[in-house]
Amino acid sequence: MNSPEIEHIKPAGRTDAIIWTEGLTRSFDEEVAVEDVTMSVPRGSIFGFIGPSGSGKTTTIRLLTGVYRPTAGEIEVLGRDPARFTQATRAMIGYMPQLFVLYPELTVWENLNFVSSLYGMKLRRKQRLHEVLSFVELDEHRHKLVRDVSGGMQRRLSLAATLVHRPELIFLDEPTAGIDPVLRRKFWDHFGELKEAGRTLFITTQYVSEAIYCDFVGVLSKGRLLVVDTPKALRYQAFGGDIVDFQAEQPLSFQHLHALRELSFVQALPRRVSEAHVRLIVGEAATDIPELLEWAQAQEIAVASVEEYMPPFDDVFVELVEEDNGG
């Protein structure tokens, strides 16, 4: 299989990665929550950690932030073992827990002020607080008690609290869980801006479709990291090549289908969508689509459309997990 345009990532070196793990394992009694995770996250990237509920995403974040101690394996975050984090190292990390943990009896401003103090920010920080609240569009709600604001606003406050001290490395544990699609999109826009500002984001999510916003994606299932790659490479890896939708003007005969399967660049013909519409897997869509058109012309088939199909990441994820399960 030839795939010259797919940029598979090479593991960043231990020295140039902001996060580096090897054989990271964590068990709780007899239950293995995270098993043999090896990965590296380059600085200034968005690393998406995707997996279903209970797959070990939060445990991995807790291992990386120094909340948990690994049962086996090695970790280096910001060049240090989390067990040896200094206060200065911790001040370089931002962490947004999965659930809202701030105080409902305090206002938005007071909560943010509290977190700022936890990070030892200087007392003249009013401007920074306004800045970060504006970033998450909460500045005009700053005097409201948190118990009186919506769940979405609470998530935004959590994000503001994570960012207020300008961390270099940001861990976000399912930041978009349970919020509406519009806000989710806004969150990812914010994450993009942070990346542009040179921050590194390690984001866990259950929404597989959000993988598209990431520079690198790690797929986690049952505590094991199935694959780490770019979103495009993952898609390719999931289906064994690019997917092309071929639609003819008239129904395709059995002979046409047989001939299609025999073409050298066609990897598989997984699905007949309708009598005139088939979905093919090819080595590389960009070079193989012209060849497909030539073949159709030679076969005197009137072509309605030929285009690369981008399957949703849910499908990619299912493919990868099933593949891992031997399905």
């Binding site: 932030t65 962490y95 827990p97 659930l99 943990v101 977190v115 936890l118």
Partner: peptide, 14 residues
């Protein structure tokens, strides 16, 4: 119970 202690554990507060 509220989970704030996890925030403390990650933050520089001792």
């Amino acid at each position: 119970r509220g989970g704030t202690i996890e925030l403390f554990r990650v933050s520089p507060v001792s």
